[in-house]
Computed example of a mutant assay.
Amino acid sequence: MYYIENNGAGIKLGAILFDFLSSYEENFRELVFVCIGSDRITGDSLGPLVGHSLSRQGLSSAYVYGTLSNPVHALNLRETIEEINLRHPDSLVIAVDASLGTRKHTGCLTISRGALEPGLGVKKKLPPVGDISITGIVNSAGNFDHFNLQTTKLSTVVRMADAIVFGILLAYRRYFYGTARISVQT
């Protein structure tokens, strides 16, 4: 797992994600982004914010599940995974979610190979998802995890979502088109 601090986080994330995509051992025809979270809790809105931004980019060979208007969360995650397995059997799945961590790591992004286990921070047992995992540590873990998610600053979540989207677009364009030119729509 890589921890990425604030300064240049999008560029660093993009470089690592590109390396992951380039070294992936199995052939994949498309990317599927599963952006997990709820738009009703500030700290948990990271995934839907990323999904919202990615869905507006018109990326060919890429599909986005989990947006502000159609979030993927604890109540529909299993069904979403089943749908992805059915509709996108030759895909590489990249899961994005908010997480809680140590005070020292608050504000950091993480990226790792392997499945993401959503809900761990709030002690929910949900199915793992993804071949690559990206998280944003939105607040510190503790005795009041639900409260910490509810009181997370929106500006923190938006900054992290912007960095994740920037990194994903950087890696996507470099991998599929050999260029790192970014045009971000707002």
Rank of each mutant, 00 (worst) to 15 (best):
L49F: 04
V50K: 02
L54F: 11
S55P: 00
Q57G: 03
L59E: 13
S60V: 08
S60L: 06
S61C: 03
S61G: 07
S61R: 15
A62P: 00
A62C: 09
A62R: 05
Y63D: 00
Y63A: 14
V64T: 12
G66K: 01
G66Q: 10
T67W: 02
S69W: 08
S69A: 00
N70I: 02
N70E: 08
P71Q: 05
H73S: 02
H73K: 11
A74F: 13
L75I: 14
L75N: 15
L75F: 14
N76S: 00
N76E: 05
E79W: 02
E79F: 09
T80W: 01
I81C: 04
E82D: 13
E82L: 13
E83H: 09
L86P: 05
P89M: 04
D90C: 12
S91M: 05
I94P: 05
A95I: 01
D97K: 03
D97M: 04
A98M: 07
S99T: 05
L100R: 03
R103N: 03
R103L: 05
G107K: 14
G107P: 04
L109V: 03
T110S: 15
T110M: 11
I111Q: 07
S112V: 06
R113I: 13
G114S: 09
A115I: 09
E117Y: 14
E117C: 11
P118C: 15
G119A: 10
K123D: 00
K124T: 14
K125Y: 15
K125E: 15
L126F: 06
L126Y: 13
P127R: 05
V129W: 03
G130V: 00
I132V: 11
I134F: 02
T135K: 15
T135S: 14
G136R: 13
I137M: 13
I137E: 05
N139H: 10
S140T: 08
S140Q: 11
G142Q: 01
N143H: 09
F144L: 10
F144P: 02
H146Y: 10
H146E: 06
F147G: 00
Q150F: 07
